[in-house]
């Protein structure tokens, strides 16, 4: 662990401040046998950017995120997250990324605090108790600190999931359909929370929710059959073109 920390610090010193690239993907392909899951994906995401990833089921969105988060090795091409190669420095990268998924990744039979303490030990978080206090306050769950996650509502669980994802101060956050199963009220809380952490994190979000996805993002991408069907900055986003491609590729209308 100390070695990894040293590596991280070294990287931070090297990189200049300002709008640097946080995620860089070039010529990325993934095969399972002869089956192509991803073909020649290339894109860049600047630090603090927010990429919304759309696409039908089986388009390769999840595989792409899994490759970025070191869980799957790419077949071809290069990937760099926070200046590191996920395949070579997997442990170092994992320390810098967080995941908020549609399943909470929390143990139902442990209390909120025990869950955070467990993940804190996994990540080797310093001053864990203080960090937990701070986070529970932030997600407004300090009053439920000692309650089992099993007793939480869906919204509360998702808030705790956010606290869990932020515990180790990641610089990149992956959101895998985070709106699934949330009621409108929980979505509001979730998004105001996202707002507060928006500044100093880089996001990649998989979503089927066009409205939210487009509102939040700085870049939008549609994946279809493992290839990029649409990719534009939000600033010069052609809404008609987006809708047309989305209708064709994702909904399958012609």
């Amino acid at each position: 662990m100390p070695k990894q920390m040293a590596e991280l610090l070294k990287h931070e010193k090297q990189s200049p401040t300002g709008a640097q690239t946080e995620i860089e993907v070039a010529g990325l392909s993934k095969y399972f046998g002869k089956r192509k899951v991803l073909t020649k994906i290339s894109f860049e995401l600047e630090k603090g950017g927010f990429l919304s990833l759309f696409g039908p089921n089986g388009a390769g969105k999840t595989t792409l995120v899994k490759i970025l988060s070191t869980l799957v090795a790419p077949s071809e091409g290069t990937v760099s997250v926070a200046g590191l190669d996920p395949y070579k420095n997997s442990a170092a990268i994992r320390a810098k990324i967080g995941l908020i998924s549609h399943s909470p990744l929390l143990y139902l039979d442990l209390s909120a605090e025990e869950n955070l303490k467990f993940y804190g030990a996994m990540y080797g978080v310093d001053n864990l108790d203080a960090r937990i206090d701070e986070l529970l306050e932030q997600v407004e769950l300090d009053h439920r600190r000692y309650d089992l996650v099993r007793t939480f509502s869906k919204g509360m669980t998702q808030r705790l999931a956010i606290a869990r994802a932020l515990l180790h101060r990641p610089s990149v956050l992956f959101l895998d359909e985070p709106h699934t199963g949330l009621d409108p009220h929980a979505v509001d809380i979730f998004e105001s929370l996202l707002d507060t952490i928006r500044q100093d994190h880089t996001f990649v979000m998989i979503t089927h929710n066009i409205e939210r996805g487009l509102a939040l993002c700085s870049k939008a991408m549609i994946l279809y059959n493992g290839q990029i069907a649409f990719y534009q900055n939000k600033a010069d986003l052609d809404k008609d073109m987006f809708n047309e491609i989305y209708r064709q590729k994702v909904k399958g209308e012609h």
């Binding site: 170092a92 994992r94 998924s101 909470p104 990744l105 993940y119």
Partner: peptide
């Protein structure tokens, strides 16, 4: 337990 709430994925995402 690990599989049902997706905890295994959470465990795999951590630098262990």
């Amino acid at each position: 337990h690990e599989k049902d709430e997706g905890c295994l994925e959470g465990l795999l995402m951590s630098p262990i």
